[in-house]
């Protein structure tokens, strides 16, 4: 059962921030809602938390309609982008806050706070004030606070976006492990596909208030709904029309797709590659050379070359296609919204 959202619409004045959305968040898994800013994903999360009133539709948990249930009785916990720790209370009091709300005995609160701080890797931080913590530490404390009463659903609003890159990657891994260890059901909204892939089991892609696609990570990743979704999921190029058929002929003659998304690493410079291409631009990275290519018969595509191969702009090269780095898009009739 878990969380069910049916035909949900949220309007602010004339504009619909969320437009007729239906989706399920199954128990025991982490579901990520992925979308650019303005896609309505945060509004969706706020409706689930009970902070926003829907204009139409229904949100229920284990079959119970949540409309009449105020935020504080939903048994969820919401973790904000910037943690929103209470600045006037120390770390221990922040983490123990939901336990004290439920009148747990002081001894139990202390023990549980220590246990949670240990879980998020901040053992011994109980006396510190939030203002003295780094951004990453604050997010860890916010996570511990949100997990304190074992919420039946944990809501995460861009939990790592405010952090710098290295920290974000490390904390995403930690968050994945902590949520698994606690067996928490979670709904995560983010604009960063890497964050979604690192933390979630299931993914929902939103655009302009509507769900574009949902499914397991693998389903979404291997069959993007359309060119926009593919680019948003981190695919570097999309090939369609005649060019797509020409490419299909080469790499997968038995298939019937008509449009395909390619990761940058799908096009690789190699002496015996089947396609010829002109180098439009080249940029060095520690891992590889990133190229913009004009591939004969396929058009402009992103590609890579080994760093030890020198490539200059305007040079003619041969490229091969790495078949497991491309994802056929769903045919147009399969693109409609999933109706449960």
């Amino acid at each position: 059962m878990g969380l069910e959202i049916r035909d949900l619409t949220v309007r602010f004045g004339e504009t619909a921030a969320v437009d007729d959305v239906s989706l399920d968040v199954p128990t025991g898994a982490v579901t990520a809602v992925l979308g650019p800013s303005g896609s309505g994903k945060s509004t969706l999360l706020r409706v689930v938390a009970g902070l926003e009133t829907p204009s139409a539709g229904r949100v229920s948990y284990d079959g119970e309609d949540l409309a009449p249930v105020p935020t504080h009785r939903r048994g969820f916990a919401l973790m904000f982008q910037d943690g929103q720790l209470f600045g006037h209370a120390d770390v221990g009091r922040n983490v123990g806050y939901p336990l004290r709300l439920r009148h747990r005995p002081a001894g139990e609160v202390r023990a549980r706070v220590d246990e949670l701080l240990d879980l998020v890797g901040l053992a011994g931080y109980a006396e510190r004030m939030p203002a003295t913590l780094s951004g990453g530490e604050r997010q860890r404390v916010a996570l511990a606070r949100a997990l304190a009463v074992e919420p039946r659903l944990l809501l995460l609003d861009e939990p790592l976006s405010a952090l710098d890159r290295g920290l974000r990657e490390r904390l995403a891994g930690d968050l994945h492990d902590i949520l698994r260890a606690a067996g928490t059901t979670a709904l995560l909204v983010t604009h960063d596909h890497e964050e979604a892939f690192a933390i979630a089991d299931r993914m929902v892609v939103m655009r302009d208030g509507a769900v574009v696609q949902d499914g397991s990570l693998d389903e979404v990743w291997s069959r993007p709904a359309d060119a926009w979704a593919a680019r948003f999921l981190g695919y570097a190029s999309v090939v369609s029309g005649e060019a797509a058929l020409r490419l299909r002929e080469r790499v997968d003659p038995g298939a019937d797709w008509t449009e395909v998304a390619l990761r940058r690493s799908a096009i690789r410079v190699s002496e015996d590659g089947p396609f010829a291409a002109t180098v439009l631009a080249a940029r060095m990275t520690p891992e590889q050379l990133r190229l913009d290519l004009d591939v004969d018969g396929l058009g402009p595509l992103a590609g890579v070359a080994e760093t030890n191969r020198s490539v200059s702009v305007g040079e003619r090269v041969h490229v091969s296609v790495v078949t497991d780095r491309l994802a056929p898009l769903r045919p147009a009739d399969g693109r409609s919204r999933r109706t449960p």
Binding site: L51, H72, Y97, L101, R145
Partner: peptide, 16 residues
């Protein structure tokens, strides 16, 4: 959002 965070952790309006 401070109030919202408290509410989502289980604090009623007066408690917030």
């Amino acid at each position: 959002r401070q109030r919202e965070a408290a509410a989502s952790l289980g604090a009623g309006p007066l408690r917030v």
